[in-house]
Design a protein around this nucleic acid. Structure first.
Lengths: 189, 189
DNA sequence: CGTTCAGTTGACTAAGGTCAATTCCCGTGG
DNA sequence: CCACGGGAATTGACCTTAGTCAACTGAACG
C-alpha cells in the first residue's frame, strides 16, 4: 500500500525491514455506514488508516452529540487520548459511509516503539503533530467568532462542508444547528 | 537539583549517566520582573525549568495581549510550537516576578534524543503530555461557559487566581476584563 | 498631591441559545 | 405514481450574556 507508506513517511522514514515488520501487523476491515470503529468505554485497541470513507469522532453529554473530529481518506484515525494514556474514554467513532480501513494493533505498535529508534521517532512525531493540530484548533476558538470559524473551515477543509450533515458541522464548530443556519443565511443571502 | 530530576522523571527515568550528560548542559539564569525569556520572532533556543517565580506566555493581536499560559515554580517552560517545529513564533514569555530558571539548550536536548532511547522516550512523553494538556483546555472551551471556566480555574489552579492580575486571567479565559469582573460580581455578591 | 493603571459599573449593542413551529428533502410502502 | 413519515434544516420570538465604549473609583507610587 503506497498511500499508507507515504502517510507514515510524513512522520518517520522507516527502513524496509521496519516497514516489513509493521506491514505484518496490519489487517483490513470494512465498516458499514452507521457502524462503530470504537464506542464509549472502550480502550483504544487499534490505530487505523482510512483507505476509503469518512468517520466522525464524537461523545455524548446528557444525550447531546458533541462532534470533535472527522477522519477522511488517506488519514490516520484513532481515539488518541486513549491511545496515549491507555485508559478508556467516552468517545465514539462512527462510519458516516461504507468504509474500508487498515488496522494496526495499538499494543503491537507501542511494542515497535521500544525496539527501534526510528519507531520511537515515529511515536514522538505523531504526538507532536497532534499537539500542533489541537493547538491551532484551540487558537481558532480563542481568536475567531463562530462565523469566522465557519469561513475558516470552508476555506481550509472544504471536504468537511461537502460531505457532512450540517448539524454535525455546527457541533464541530461549537455552536447549535440553528446558529449555523443563521450564519449561512447572513453570509449567502 | 532534586526537584528538577523529579520533574524529568515524570516523563522518563533517565539513568545516572544520561542525567550527568543532561546536567552538564544546564545553566542558571535570573529574570527581573518584566523582562523576557523569549520575545516575538525568536526561535525557541532554550527549554527552561522554573526554579522560582512566575512567567506568562502571550502574543499580540493588533495591540491586544492574548495570554495563553502561565508557568509556575517546578514546571518546565518553553515556546512549544517553536520548540517542536524549529520555526520562529509570535509568542512572548515574560517574567511576572523576579525569577530564577534553569536553561537547557533546545538543540542540545534534541541532540540527546538522537543518541539514547530513554531520551527519545522523554521527547515522546513530553509531546504526549502537551497534547493531552491542550486537548483538555480545548474541551473546556467547547463544553463550558466563561463563568464555568472561571470556577474550574479557581478549583484546579488556585495559584493562577492568587498570583496573577485579573485582566491577564480574563484574557487566559478568553473574555474581556469587564466580563470577568461581572462574573465575579454575580458569583460573590 | 497628582499621575497612572487595574478594576468596577452603567448603558447600549450584537449574537448565540432555547423552544416551538414550519418547511424541505428523501426514502418507503401502499 | 403518489401519499406519508421522519429527520434535517430553517425561521421566528424571546432571553441571556458577552462585547464595546465611556465614566468613575481606588490603590500604588513617586
Amino acid at each position: 500500500m503506497e498511500r499508507l507508506r507515504a502517510a507514515f513517511n510524513k512522520f518517520s522514514n522507516l527502513n524496509d525491514l521496519e516497514w516489513e515488520k509493521l506491514y505484518a501487523l496490519m489487517r483490513t476491515k470494512y465498516f458499514k455506514k452507521g457502524t462503530y470503529f470504537v464506542t464509549e468505554g472502550q480502550q483504544c485497541k487499534y490505530v487505523a488508516f482510512v483507505k476509503k470513507g469518512i468517520f466522525s469522532y464524537y461523545y455524548l453529554v446528557d444525550g447531546h452529540q458533541h462532534t470533535r473530529q472527522f477522519f477522511f481518506e488517506n488519514n490516520f484515525m484513532a481515539n488518541y487520548q486513549s491511545y496515549i494514556t491507555g485508559t478508556s474514554s467516552k468517545a465514539n467513532i462512527q462510519a458516516l459511509q461504507d468504509s474500508e480501513v487498515i488496522l494496526i494493533n495499538r499494543d503491537d505498535l507501542f511494542n515497535c516503539y521500544e525496539h527501534s529508534s526510528n519507531f520511537q521517532l515515529l511515536g514522538r512525531k505523531v504526538a507532536e503533530y497532534l499537539f500542533l493540530t489541537v493547538s491551532s484548533k484551540y487558537e481558532s476558538f480563542l481568536l475567531e467568532k463562530p462565523e469566522e470559524r465557519y469561513l475558516h473551515l470552508v476555506k481550509t477543509r472544504p471536504k468537511v462542508i461537502q460531505g457532512i450533515p450540517q448539524y454535525m458541522i455546527a457541533s464541530y464548530l461549537g455552536i447549535t444547528p440553528e446558529a449555523l443556519s443563521r450564519i449561512r443565511k447572513r453570509l449567502y443571502r
